[in-house]
């Protein structure tokens, strides 16, 4: 039982990552691909935050009477990673808007056919 409690978080996070990854590589619609990419990345963030947790600890902000803090380093890394994620999302979505204007569609197989036709 303790084995399952120790690893439950990791396994669910792996499941979430793979769900996001599946959406990225299987979706034909570009907006959905970006949503998948975000789900994938957010789940990776959860992996990092999970490893930073200390049972019985609190948020890493100094407070009186607290001696056990969770690890601040993964939090810092993920703050950076979230920002990187939104930056990529913004550029990806702008590309989608331009693709829609240039091809009239955001379904991957449709504009691929057009590209091949040229």
């Amino acid at each position: 039982m303790s084995f399952i409690i120790d690893y439950y978080n990791y396994w669910i996070v792996v499941f979430l990552m793979m769900t996001g990854f599946y959406i990225v590589i299987s979706a034909n619609n570009l907006v959905k691909k970006i949503v998948g990419l975000n789900i994938f990345q957010t789940s990776v963030f959860m992996l990092y935050i999970t490893m930073g947790k200390v049972s019985g600890g609190t948020a890493p902000i100094v407070a009186e009477g607290v001696t056990l803090y969770s690890n601040p380093l993964p939090h810092v890394l993920i703050l950076t990673a979230i920002v990187v994620g939104v930056a990529t999302t913004a550029v990806g979505l702008s590309l989608i808007v331009r693709i829609k204007r240039a091809y009239g569609t955001v379904e991957e197989n449709e504009f691929q056919n057009e590209d091949d036709a040229i």
């Binding site: 957010t42 789940s43 963030f45 959860m46 935050i49 999970t50 930073g52 947790k53 200390v54 600890g57 609190t58 948020a59 890493p60 902000i61 803090y69 969770s70 993964p74 939090h75 993920i78 703050l79 979230i82 920002v83 994620g85 939104v86």
Partner: peptide
């Protein structure tokens, strides 16, 4: 996920995830 982050003590991250 922001809620998860709060429950895992990452309040700054939760704040950012919720707003971003």
């Amino acid at each position: 996920s922001a809620l998860i982050f709060v429950s895992l003590d990452a309040v700054d991250v939760a704040f950012t995830e919720a707003s971003v």
